[in-house]
């Protein structure tokens, strides 16, 4: 069974119809996308009053914390202010320290309304209060203002007069230099005196630097006291040992060890002993000065001293004789002792 021939006209109608339907559906979708329509989402209106909206337009974005949450519905000029109404996708609770400003979206153009709801500890903005937006930061306006200020400063702000004064000062300085006045002028104009002094000074400096370099090289080689001090670490070790000893001594002193420690300690028995001993010595010395006792007489009586001296000499002579004769006596004693 052969299929029925396709009706060409019907086929054309189908093709045209399908094409139109597809394109119209795409057109409808595109229209919705470009219109940024939100048919099924609840909208929360927000009205803000600005002095200047800097070219903000209908359907521009409303941004909170960098997130787009709505778009501008309308702008209306009223009482010298611009009343901007925005449709938000979610409600906002503005605080008393909120901040609403219009920003440029890019350097290529475009504007958006940027909202900062405020700090959490600030009180809520009453619902019947219409928030007021801040004046937008216009880069071109700021640049124009800076240019105007610079121009004003150049013309009437004193920069010009200051520059003239600086130029006059420089001219005076150069004239003085040309006349050879002052140290720098003399240096520039006089080729003998200052130049010679400067040359000598440079030579002295060069010699001093050479000597310093030699000394530093000697020190680096470990020569001399300073070099050895830097190169040899025995001194350090000795100093360390001394410090150790001093610490030991100080510890012993602190601990009341030894004579000095006992002297420094809270126990004053040694001090009392020494005091008593000193008193005794003092008394003995007084007695000796007064010529009391043997030592006093010896120190005061010259005759006694001479007699004692003679007696000692005789005693020394007797001992010498005995020493000389003692080997003979001993030998004789041994010899005759055997019998």
């Amino acid at each position: 069974m052969t299929p029925k021939p396709v009706n060409r006209e019907l086929m054309m109608e189908w093709i045209v119809g399908v094409f139109m339907l597809v394109v119209l559906l795409a057109l409808a979708y595109f229209t919705i996308v470009l219109g940024r329509a939100t048919f099924f989402q609840r909208q929360y209106p927000l009205t803000v009053v600005f002095e200047d909206v800097m070219g903000l337009r209908k359907d521009d974005a409303v941004v909170v914390n960098g997130m787009t949450i709505g778009k501008i519905r309308s702008l209306r000029l009223q009482d010298g202010l611009v009343e901007v109404t925005a449709d938000l996708n979610q409600p906002l609770q503005l605080r008393a320290d909120h901040r609403i400003v219009i920003m440029a979206t890019s350097i290529l153009g475009g504007r958006q309304m940027q909202i900062e709801v405020g700090s959490p500890d600030a009180p809520l903005l009453p619902e019947n209060v219409i928030p007021r937006g801040r004046r937008p930061y216009d880069l071109m306006e700021e640049a124009a203002k800076v240019v105007h200020e610079v121009r004003q400063a150049l013309t009437t702000g004193g920069i010009s007069s200051n520059a003239q004064a600086v130029v006059a000062s420089l001219r005076e300085i150069t004239e003085r230099l040309e006349r050879g006045e002052g140290t720098l002028g003399r240096l520039l104009s006089d080729d003998t005196g200052p130049y010679t002094d400067l040359t000598n000074m440079v030579a002295d400096l060069r010699e001093a630097s050479r000597q310093i370099r030699e000394v530093s090289e000697q020190v680096a080689r470990g020569e001399g006291t300073l070099g050895r001090l830097l190169a040899d670490d025995s001194l350090y070790r000795e100093a360390s040992a001394i410090a150790t000893n001093l610490r030991t001594v100080s510890e012993r002193l602190a601990g009341g060890e030894g004579t000095l420690g006992k002297l420094l300690s809270a126990d004053d028995s040694l001090y009392r002993d020494l005091s008593e001993a000193a008193a005794s010595v003092k008394e003995i010395a007084g007695r000796m000065e007064r010529g009391e006792g043997l030592l006093g007489r010896l120190s005061t009586d010259e005759a006694l001293y001479e007699e004692a001296r003679a007696a000692l000499q005789e005693l020394r002579a007797a001992v010498d004789d005995f020493r000389e004769t003692s080997p003979v006596v001993s030998f004789t004693t041994l010899l005759f002792g055997a019998f």
Binding site: M12, E13, V16
Partner: peptide, 16 residues
């Protein structure tokens, strides 16, 4: 209608 559809096909669809 028939003529219009034909022209739409000839002028539009065939130019796709």
């Amino acid at each position: 209608r028939q003529a219009i559809v034909t022209q739409m096909y000839v002028g539009g669809i065939k130019s796709l």
